[in-house]
């Protein structure tokens, strides 16, 4: 669009890019998960995003609310594990925040992403530093909002979010997990990257690429 707004076309492109990023990193995500979890994160996310892709191929709904409710429900019903409810709730809340809109500005997208993060925290009850996806998503949102406050468009803000997500993801490595299956390892979870934070970085990198021009 290039007019500073983000519409359904860009959002669908985001989801398609996220799908291909997940597929490309499927084995890596599963490897990360075998170190401190149960060796299924890549396979589960790939199954979920493949289902989302098939749904989108059949035609995307026209509003944020309808699009992301469909994406969220598809993930909830196809992923299982903890990732299904967490990513599913993220997209459903994101959609609810901009229900009837067909396009949003940079701040509107930020509000929707913030609502998504709120859903993840409510569902998973994780706090910053628990070695979960929240550790990548929280700094990503803070960077996005700071960029928008400084006058950045959605594309530049999303790039800032992606780079903050990367730092957040990398910062999970030394942490001791306090949520999810990795928490059972105690100190032994330190030294490994959290798989959920790794897929969260892919989510924000895909967003940055999808709306690069906005």
């Amino acid at each position: 669009m290039g007019d500073g707004t983000v519409g359904i076309v860009e959002m669908v492109r985001w989801l398609e890019l996220f799908q291909s990023e997940i597929a490309a990193h499927r084995a890596w995500l599963t490897d990360l998960d075998s170190a401190i979890g149960d060796a299924d994160h890549g396979a589960n996310m790939d199954r979920g995003m493949t289902a989302v892709g098939a749904k989108l191929a059949a035609g995307a709904p026209g509003t944020f609310g309808d699009l992301f409710k469909s994406v969220g429900m598809t993930l909830v019903t196809s992923v299982g594990g903890a990732s299904g409810p967490l990513y599913g709730t993220f997209f459903m809340r994101l959609g609810m925040a901009q229900g009837a809109a067909a396009e949003v500005d940079a701040a509107g997208l930020g509000a929707a992403l913030r609502a998504g993060l709120g859903g993840v925290v409510a569902r998973g009850k994780a706090e910053l530093g628990d070695k979960t996806m929240v550790d990548a998503m929280t700094p990503a949102l803070e960077a996005y909002e700071a960029a928008v406050a400084n006058g950045a468009g959605a594309g530049a803000a999303a790039r800032a979010a992606a780079s903050a997500a990367k730092a957040g993801r990398d910062a999970t490595v030394p942490l001791v997990a306090r949520k999810g299956r990795a928490s059972y390892l105690g100190e032994r979870s330190a030294g490994h990257m959290d798989p959920g934070s790794a897929s969260t970085l892919l989510l924000f990198e895909s967003l940055a690429e999808a709306i690069a021009e906005e």
Binding site: V76, S78, G80, G84
Partner: peptide, 11 residues
């Protein structure tokens, strides 16, 4: 029944 080692889904 969920996938191997993966919780079933709410539906």
């Amino acid at each position: 029944a969920g996938a191997v080692f993966t919780s079933p889904t709410p539906d």
